[in-house]
């Protein structure tokens, strides 16, 4: 799952000619550290929903990689079914 998330984040970074990441650091902020604007976050949400069937912004707007991972881990049972 982590590799897939890195791929998705990198595809967004690459589309805007930004430096890619090699691993998932929990403290990283999507907005402040990766420079994601609302359209990038929307893209992330669509790509993750395509991949895992989960809307990461359904309950609240998240910003940290740790929050993203928490949502996905909390839905692991569901992920198992969708994969």
């Amino acid at each position: 799952m982590e590799t897939k998330i890195i791929d998705i984040l990198n595809s967004i970074l690459l589309s805007k000619n930004k430096e890619i990441i090699t691993d998932l650091e929990e403290k990283v902020s999507l907005r402040n550290d990766l420079g994601f604007d609302s359209l990038d976050l929307a893209t992330l949400s669509v790509r993750i929903e395509d991949e895992f069937g989960i809307d990461i912004f359904e309950e609240k707007i998240i910003d940290k990689i740790s929050e993203l991972l928490t949502i996905l881990h909390n839905n692991e049972e569901f992920l198992g079914r969708s994969k």
């Binding site: 929307a42 669509v46 809307d55 912004f57």
Partner: peptide, 12 residues
């Protein structure tokens, strides 16, 4: 158009 809860849609 791809729906999402943040911007309504983005385009694919």
């Amino acid at each position: 158009p791809r729906k999402n809860s943040l911007t309504g849609n983005i385009l694919e």
